[in-house]
Amino acid sequence: MFIIRFLGSTRGRAVRVVAGAGLLIAGAVLGGPWWILAGVGAVVAGASALDVCLLAPLVGKPIPGPRFRASFAR
């Protein structure tokens, strides 16, 4: 549960943006079948930039960032 909570935090969002950008760049540079990395990186970076946690439904939490963080305060 700690990792899900971390990923929804501000620091976790920053980590997801950096990791997503890294995957995006790696996929673009490597080319060929590695373009899949670029797609995954775009999803990861885009989701964190829009403040949503795509893993939240796996633990029964809401997807939007503010509602996700508020669900842990209860």
Rank of each mutant, 00 (worst) to 15 (best):
P57H: 15
G31V: 14
A38C: 04
V18N: 02
L54M: 13
L54T: 04
T10D: 07
G41K: 06
F68L: 04
A42K: 14
V17N: 03
V52T: 10
A26K: 08
A28M: 08
V40W: 00
A21I: 10
P64W: 09
L58A: 15
A47C: 12
L30P: 11
K61E: 13
I3R: 03
A49F: 03
D51N: 15
W34G: 11
P33K: 11
A45V: 13
I3A: 02
F6P: 03
R16A: 09
L58P: 14
A45G: 00
L55K: 10
A28S: 03
I36G: 12
R5F: 05
A21P: 07
I36M: 02
P57A: 09
V15W: 01
W35M: 09
A49H: 08
I25V: 13
R67V: 09
G46I: 10
S48E: 03
S48G: 07
G65H: 13
S9F: 05
G32F: 07
L58Q: 15
I25H: 07
D51R: 02
L55V: 14
A21V: 12
A26P: 04
V15H: 05
W35R: 05
S71H: 07
L37C: 15
V18M: 11
D51I: 08
I3C: 03
S9H: 03
S71Q: 02
I36E: 06
I4T: 04
F68H: 15
F2E: 06
V15P: 00
G41R: 11
L23W: 11
G12W: 05
G8E: 10
L50F: 07
P62N: 09
R69Y: 04
F72N: 00
G31R: 01
S48H: 12
A70L: 08
I3W: 05
A38Q: 08
G8L: 02
C53H: 00
R11K: 00
C53L: 15
G32R: 09
K61A: 15
L50S: 09
A56V: 12
A45Y: 13
I25C: 06
S71W: 08
P62E: 01
A70R: 11
I25N: 05
A38W: 12
V59N: 13
F2M: 06
I25L: 11
I63V: 15
V43M: 14
G22V: 03
L54R: 10
R11P: 04
W35T: 14
V17G: 02
I3S: 01
G22Y: 07
V15D: 01
G8W: 06
V29A: 10
A38M: 11
L37I: 13
K61D: 13
